[in-house]
């Protein structure tokens, strides 16, 4: 029975995948392929499948909320490390949920609404503070990257590039040559490296996609 279920799941996933791929990839001007896709209305089917994905993804938000509440309820019940923070999280979640329901019911009125205040004055402020901390963490990372490597040509090159990038950003006319060197670094080697990384990821994604489409992914085989 389990084997039949596995095969059925694989057939459904592969079938839906191939139909969606054909609907998205095959357009006009590809001869019999275009005629095939047009004749079977594959593009409409692909659009329908994508809409189903959006709806399913929306449902998983509920799963996420339940997961979050259950994890923190368990922490409070077990008095695990940091259970006090879990209590605050649960209380905040219940309070925000109640405020939203009361606002929608017209019981809680105010301009601006309380939930918007909570989002803009609490959530955004906390995230902005974290963004400020991020700067220090990034500087720490840069220092660590220069210190942790053993002395080598690559380490020297890395440190030199870092110094040029930092010094070249200073608004001092005396450092104009460094600013030019920085611009060149960002436009040529950095840009080429980033493109190389993205191309590598794109190729790996393509191959991983083909593996899924032909049923070689582990989830189909176990």
């Amino acid at each position: 029975m389990a084997r039949i279920t596995r095969v059925l799941a694989a057939v459904i996933a592969i079938g839906f995948g191939l139909i969606t791929l054909a609907g998205l990839l095959v357009g006009e001007g590809l001869g019999f392929l275009s005629a095939f896709v047009d004749g079977l209305r594959v593009r409409d089917l692909a659009g329908l499948f994508l809409q189903l994905v959006v709806i399913t993804a929306a449902v998983t938000v509920l799963i996420g909320v339940v997961n979050l509440l259950l994890v923190h309820l368990r922490r409070v019940r077990q008095r695990a490390c940091g259970w006090v923070y879990s209590t605050v999280l649960l209380a905040a979640a219940v309070a925000v949920l109640a405020a939203t329901v009361l606002e929608r019911a017209g019981v809680l009125t105010g301009d601006p609404p309380l939930t918007r205040l909570l989002l803009e004055d609490v959530q955004v402020s906390v995230e902005s503070a974290l963004a400020g901390l991020l700067l220090f963490a990034l500087v720490y990372g840069a220092v660590r990257a220069t210190r942790s490597q053993r002395f080598s040509g690559w380490a020297l090159l890395f440190t030199l590039a870092l110094l040029i990038a930092l010094a070249g950003a200073l608004p001092l006319p005396e450092l104009a040559p460094l600013a030019e060197a920085r611009s060149w670094l960002l436009a040529v080697p950095v840009s080429a490296g980033a493109r190389g990384i993205l191309l590598g990821i794109a190729l790996a994604t393509l191959v991983a996609g083909v593996r899924v489409l032909i049923g070689q992914d582990r989830s189909y085989r176990e």
């Binding site: 799963i63 996420g64 997961n67 979050l68 259950l70 994890v71 368990r74 959530q123 906390v126 995230e127 974290l130 963004a131 991020l134």
Partner: peptide
């Protein structure tokens, strides 16, 4: 309980925190 969801804010900073 081994799988946990941490909500991400606009810049994923809440997730990191």
């Amino acid at each position: 309980g081994a799988v946990r969801w941490y909500p991400a804010g606009p810049r994923s900073l809440a997730f990191a925190a």
